[in-house]
Computed example of a mutant assay.
Amino acid sequence: MPQIVVTIDEKTYRMACAEGEEKHLETLAADVDGKISELRGSFGQIGDLRLTVMAAIMATDQLYEARRKLQELQAQIDADAETRTASEAGSETRRREFAESLDETAAALERITAKLTAGA
């Protein structure tokens, strides 16, 4: 199992990860480091643990917001699919009605043709 070293808040950590996930873990660690640096810039020296907790809450909030947006998008996709299905069903009904109308018209024309031919 690969191991990498990441730096968060000027402290280094050795971490294990799955094969091929090294770059991803480094990116995540850099994001956490960035959040902690941002918080330290806003609040000053308020303690490592408090900064870490605040960074975790910020990350969790972003995750929550992303999940909420994903649910909204999924609901919209589902609604669009239902609308499309209803529209397709309506189109099929209209096609069937049109075909029946054409059949009736063709039958009427055949009756008229038969009468005209019989009278001639």
Rank of each mutant, 00 (worst) to 15 (best):
A16C: 11
E100P: 00
A99R: 14
S91Y: 07
A107I: 04
I57Q: 05
D48L: 09
S87N: 01
D103F: 01
K35E: 15
D9P: 00
F43N: 12
A75F: 12
R94A: 15
L49F: 05
H24W: 10
E26G: 00
Y13H: 11
K115T: 02
A75M: 12
T113C: 01
A86C: 01
A108T: 05
T60C: 12
K23A: 07
T27I: 04
F43C: 14
M58D: 13
A118R: 11
G41R: 14
F98L: 14
L70T: 13
E104G: 03
Y64L: 07
L116P: 00
S42Y: 04
V5E: 13
M54C: 12
D31S: 08
T52P: 01
R84K: 12
A99N: 15
L102F: 15
A106R: 13
V32K: 03
A81N: 06
Y13G: 07
M15R: 04
P2V: 03
L109A: 10
D78I: 09
A75R: 10
E92N: 05
F98S: 07
D61W: 08
K11Q: 13
G34E: 00
T93S: 15
E26F: 02
E26V: 03
R14H: 07
R96L: 07
E97G: 00
A55W: 03
A120T: 02
R111K: 13
V53H: 08
L70R: 11
I8Y: 04
D80E: 13
E38Q: 06
A89T: 03
G20N: 10
Q76N: 13
D78A: 12
T83F: 10
E21R: 14
A59I: 07
P2Q: 00
I46N: 06
Y64G: 08
F43T: 10
M54W: 14
Y64V: 05
E38W: 01
I57P: 02
I8H: 06
A18D: 14
A107E: 10
M15N: 04
L70S: 11
A30M: 06
A86I: 00
L70A: 13
D61Y: 07
E21P: 06
F98T: 05
T60W: 08
I46S: 05
R14Y: 04
E104Q: 13
T93A: 15
L28N: 06
G20H: 08
I112T: 03
V6A: 04
S101K: 15
L73E: 10
V32H: 01
G47V: 03
T105Q: 08
S42P: 00
D9F: 12
Q76M: 08
T83Q: 11
E110V: 10
V53I: 15
G44C: 01
E72Y: 07
A55G: 05
S101Q: 15
Q76T: 11
A120D: 00
T93R: 15
I36T: 04
L102D: 11
T60K: 12
R95T: 15
A86E: 01
D9K: 01
K23T: 06
D61C: 09
A30V: 06
D33V: 11
A107T: 06
S87P: 00
E65D: 07
T12C: 01
L51I: 10
L102M: 15
V5L: 09
E104T: 11
Q76D: 09
A106V: 12
Q71V: 10
Q74A: 08
R111W: 08
A99S: 14
V5I: 12
E82V: 11
